[in-house]
Simulated assay, not measured.
Amino acid sequence: MDSSAATEAEMLSHVLVPVATEADAKHTANALAPYAPDRVTVLHVVEKGAGSPDKTPVEQSEAIAEQAVEAFRTEFPGAALHTAYNNDVVAAIFETAAEIDASAIAYRSRGGNRLAQFLSGDLSIKLVTNADRPVIALPRGDGDD
């Protein structure tokens, strides 16, 4: 095995994959499948505001997380679920990656127009530029929402 193959194998040894919804999980699992990671942990971040009302009730958010991981498991049956509670999605991704010792973070951009990206602080840019481990930006397929 040459050094680039070894590096790729190491990077794909335990991949953390943040997902938001069941549909997002399906599309992300399909995009990740060709890379055949050894181990996958699916992350669902429940956005909890510090002192402000939650976007959705915790029970509903936990049900969404379960639906998402079940959708992901159609492609990766052994995928683990990790649920994080944080008002900063990127911070939750980084904290979880460190906690589970992920070899890489793989995500699929959820798109949106430039204004939506600007208003959200463009999570993709924060994820890619501030990570302490490799970040794999998965391709979006035609018809992905």
Rank of each mutant, 00 (worst) to 15 (best):
E59H: 04
E47H: 13
I100C: 06
T7E: 15
A65P: 01
G143S: 15
S61L: 06
V69T: 07
D2A: 06
V45G: 03
T96P: 09
I93G: 03
R39W: 03
D2L: 10
L138K: 05
V89S: 12
F72A: 03
E99Y: 08
V46T: 10
V19G: 13
A137F: 01
F76H: 04
L16D: 08
L16C: 14
T56S: 08
R133Y: 04
K126F: 00
G141A: 14
Q60N: 05
D132K: 12
E99I: 00
D54N: 12
A9V: 09
K26W: 03
A102T: 01
A25V: 08
P57F: 05
G112I: 05
Y35H: 15
S3N: 11
A102P: 01
P34E: 11
A29S: 12
L43G: 02
L81C: 11
E62G: 03
R108C: 02
Y107P: 00
S120L: 13
A29Y: 08
R140W: 03
V19I: 12
R140E: 09
A84I: 02
D144Q: 08
R114Q: 03
A9F: 09
K48A: 10
V19K: 13
F118D: 00
L16Y: 09
A29I: 10
T28A: 11
G51E: 02
T74C: 02
K26A: 14
P134H: 07
N30G: 15
T83I: 15
F94E: 09
M1F: 04
A5Q: 12
I125V: 11
T56G: 00
S3I: 14
A20V: 15
D132F: 03
D2W: 02
A9E: 15
P34H: 12
E10Y: 07
R140K: 13
A116V: 10
A71G: 07
A5W: 02
V15M: 12
D144A: 10
E59W: 02
A65I: 01
S124H: 07
L43D: 01
